[in-house]
Nucleic acid binder design. Structure first.
Lengths: 210, 210
DNA sequence: TGCAAAACTTAACGTCGTTAAGTATTATTC
DNA sequence: GAATAATACTTAACGACGTTAAGTTTTGCA
């Protein structure tokens, strides 16, 4: 039964080619200027061939998005082990923001676009695993900091702390992505803004190690 | 010469009607589901009639956006005079965020969409006037707080402070707008998140009044 | 009343996402 | 090994989009 396996393999390969072509075009020409037709054309297939591999454009986008989440997660874990939990949060935040500005098109797709996705049970499991999901990773770091009493008494809600941190870094990235070319705004250099917001937020929430 | 004045008036009225119809549709059906054709149809004109009043769809969007900025500014000024400069910043921030979540489509257009606008000289003047522009209003409040030595010594750059505040509130609004319907996220109630991020950021940057 | 300009419409172009029908190619069955 | 069934892919088409060009009606003025 090696035949059907080869067929399977070929299908996977073509699927891969579609996704790679799509991602390439997204990055090169922007997501809005990338049509199904252009994606197919890039690998010399007819536009409708895509629909044997992806239900529609949104599904294709979602699959690419899924891979990007994995990439972000890797960027976040690349900070490695850091003893001080607050320092660790700081580094994760910086990794997040650097990823965002380095991959603006992906970031826009991941966090600035509404997707009507109903996550599969499998997704849900992955998402609560710090080894897979970026948010879970942050949660883990925050939980550690909480255990070491590194947050001021006013900040005791795990979700709220995480979402506050997330809002801060997301705001910084989103503003950079959307506004960096705007003439009328004198934005400070991004690294400076990124570091400042993390400093400020952590300074606002944390207390020194006992 | 009353005739040409009446004509002028009529042009303005029709222009208004196009803009009102456009905004109505944006709010009702979302910005992406609103086409030039539908806008024209809504007030019983042919699709191409619009192009006598607006160069293209983007121009129409920009004009609507301009009005929304005025509305946001009004929301921000409605907090009134508050003696304590940091309290004032807090209130402006809350007004900003409440505006954002109350008018998500507009907010998306205003702050989450890239516009390649070259501001006119007139625009530039308006934008530096706290009586017109929201960012200038924030800047003014921050400047006042600086004058009263309400920021920690580490935070002495006006632009950086403003942009840090902005990133925080923008992040909160943007996450709410984009993610509020996402199943897999347990977002805390918005008001809570909004208040927390302002508390945290101001707590991180400010020191008590001398 | 005739004419020029302005306001508006119709028709069209090239784009898009997507579906349905058709055609090759491949695997399976006799 | 030829006939049949399934798979993979293409062609053609639909209805929608933003926008332009050409045509038509309406209007103001001589």
């Amino acid at each position: 039964m090696g035949i059907s396996e080869r067929r399977e393999r070929e299908k996977d390969e073509l699927r891969r080619k579609f996704m790679d072509a799509a991602r390439r075009l997204f990055l090169d020409r922007g997501i809005d200027n990338t049509s199904m037709r252009k994606i197919a054309d890039a690998i010399e297939y007819s536009p409708t061939a895509i629909y044997q591999y992806f239900a529609d454009k949104d599904s294709l986008l979602r699959e690419i998005c899924r891979e990007d989440f994995a990439a972000l997660h890797e960027a976040e874990t690349s900070v490695g082990e850091i003893a001080d939990p607050c320092q660790r949060i700081w580094q994760i935040g910086m990794a997040y923001m650097r990823f965002g500005v380095a991959h603006p098109e992906q970031y826009r797709l991941m966090f600035m676009t509404k997707h009507a996705v109903d996550p599969t049970p499998e997704d849900i499991q992955k998402m609560s695993d710090p080894a897979c999901d970026g948010y879970a990773l942050l949660e883990q770091a925050v939980r550690q900091a909480m255990e070491h009493q590194r947050f001021k008494p006013a900040y005791a809600d795990l979700d709220l702390i995480c979402q506050t941190l997330w809002a801060a870094v997301h705001g910084a990235v989103a503003i950079e992505i959307t506004m960096k070319d705007d003439k009328w705004l004198h934005l400070a250099p991004f690294e400076e803004r990124a570091k400042t917001i993390l400093d400020v937020v952590l300074d606002g929430m944390c207390c020194p190690p006992k």
